[in-house]
């Protein structure tokens, strides 16, 4: 059965929402554990921006679906297999270099994607992107600065950043894969072609890593499955914590 545009748009909003929500949750885990106070604050600020964006997308997803589900229902009452974020965002936090390298790779993809979505034929997606793009610009600037600081820093910081890049690289392929959801929406001018976004990602990653004196890992086997709800072993633990309160006390508010 062919996917309708409404079904595709619902799925697409979930994907955007889940990517932001899950990364936001991971970053919030740094609260109280940052290497210094300023960085602690920086990561929680970033988590806040991402959860705001997730909220916009999940709210809209609920509207598009039309079954009365709120952003909270979608965030806290769905099961693991119904989450459609990329695996990259659900991985554990690792050390600070690992967390920052993931932020950088995510931002380098997220910015050109949001820039392209500003031209979406869907006015709500365009409005969300118009808002997000300013925040993501700032985030990419900071995460790129950190990559340079690590790479061009001490032997140990360089080593840790390089190790993180190697570990994370196989998770970057999934950011650019598309399926029927994107195909249906691309035809209607609602979502962009991913080729120029991949080109922008490549250019940014190459430029920053060159300045950081870090090596870009070779493309090879790439992880997938997140978009289909097939997650890594990290996801269940993350959801158990993130959803605990609403599972234990359904509908709780304060």
């Amino acid at each position: 059965m062919k996917m309708t545009q409404q079904e595709a748009l619902f799925q697409y909003c979930l994907r955007r929402g889940d990517d932001n929500l899950i990364l936001s949750h991971r970053l919030s885990e740094w609260c109280g554990h940052g290497p210094q106070l300023e960085e602690d604050i920086a990561l929680t600020n970033r988590a806040l921006d991402l959860i705001g964006q997730a909220r916009n997308y999940l709210q809209y997803a609920g509207e598009v679906e039309g079954k009365g589900r709120s952003e909270d229902d979608l965030a806290y009452m769905r099961k693991e297999r119904d989450f459609v974020n990329v695996k990259l965002v659900e991985l554990h936090n690792g050390d600070y270099a690992y967390t920052m390298a993931r932020n950088f790779l995510y931002d380098a993809w997220h910015l050109p994607l949001q820039q392209a979505l500003m031209k979406s034929a869907d006015t709500q997606l365009a409005a969300i992107a118009g808002k997000a793009v300013k925040e993501v610009t700032y985030q990419l600037k900071t995460s790129a600065d950190w990559m340079i600081r690590f790479g061009d820093g001490t032997e140990e910081s360089h080593q840790r950043a390089q190790t993180a890049l190697h570990a994370l690289w196989t998770y970057t392929g999934e950011l650019f894969t598309t399926d029927e959801v994107e195909a249906v929406l691309q035809k209607a001018g609602i979502v962009p072609d991913m080729a120029p976004i991949k080109a922008a990602f490549d250019a940014k990653v190459d430029a920053v890593l060159a300045e950081a004196t870090l090596k870009r890992p070779a493309d090879g086997f790439m992880m997938s499955g997140g978009r289909q709800g097939k997650h890594s072993e990290h996801m269940g633990f993350l959801l158990a914590e993130m959803q605990y309160l609403q599972r234990a006390y359904p509908g709780a508010t304060w």
Partner: peptide, 13 residues
């Protein structure tokens, strides 16, 4: 600049 992020989302330190 000490930190690109400050006490609230809108501020830097």
């Amino acid at each position: 600049m000490v930190s690109a992020f400050g006490s609230t989302a809108c501020k830097a330190l």
